[in-house]
Amino acid sequence: MIRLEKDGFKNFIEELIAEYAVFAPVMKDGKHMFGNISSVEDIDSSRLNTEMSPKEIFFPHSEVLFEYDEDGIRVADGEKKPIAVWGMRGCDARSLRMLDKVFGGDGERPDNIKFEDPYWERRYGDSLIFSVACNEPLSTCFCNWFDSGPHDSAGADIFVVDIGDAFLMDAVSGKGEEFLKGLSGSGKASEKDKKKAAVIAEEAVSLLGKKTDLGELNDKLKGLFHKPIWDSVSAKCVNCGACSFTCSTCHCFDIQDESRKGRGKRVRIWDACMFPIFTKEASGHNPRSLSKERVRQRVMHKYSYFVDNHGEFLCTGCGRCISVCPVNLDIREVIREVLAS
């Protein structure tokens, strides 16, 4: 474990920027989100969770896959430098691992088909993720439901704890280890530092709400598909895309061509199962024409189908959907209602 004095942070970020395209939490037009930074001053850590999740760094809202005209097809170049993300939260680091099961080449798939999305891979593949532990979780955080916690290092390459006057950094992956080896201006963390980190971690855990056991959730959901529970669960939902678009794990997309005479581009655009057009068929028939069917889909995908396909819930407990929902449809209450039914 390494100790980096806060005095040395500016230097550290500058060195990082020299080698990587660095993303970190920034304040942009009053919204807290991840942005490409050019200096340490750009970083804004005033809020715990960014309002938009960092998935947009690797899987942007609108992405041009290729452009075409009479001369042929061109695939846009990727970033010149590999991506490094400073200030990711543990939940978000884990969300990238989940998305990697879908877009990355190494994901376990029930059908054993290996598919690698090149646009995802060229960003996430050689990225360096710094998870910064959450010392003061929010009331919307429920990562503990997923056997994780505010000081969980899973999903990170380097796990960072802010102990006040310094950052403690620990390599989690081989990539992380490599990086820390070459890091200048840092020393070894002392026993005292480690103890301090442990105290902070304990306090952080104590701030979280009560954990709900999700052991039965998938089995429960399997029996509920045709049950009336969805009427009450979905009643207040207005089927916007606010939850899906801010969610760190939702990853559905649409692909469209935007063309003018003689040229055009193919774009991949975020989509959401909450929108009626998401499932509308060419005939005009919509198999999920009702609000409750769409809410059911969102819940099922996260807490049942994804578990069957990839062995874990498609939710990290980041709580963004809870704070953003215009009608306060709290996914924790939905889960509790399902478990209680």
Binding site: D29, C240, G241, A242, S244, F245
Partner: peptide
Amino acid sequence: KCIRCYACRNVCPSCYCNECFVD
């Protein structure tokens, strides 16, 4: 800043077209 989530449209009691022009 808009992310096209349509929350604005969907909470609006005056926006009730069966199929919105954006859809």
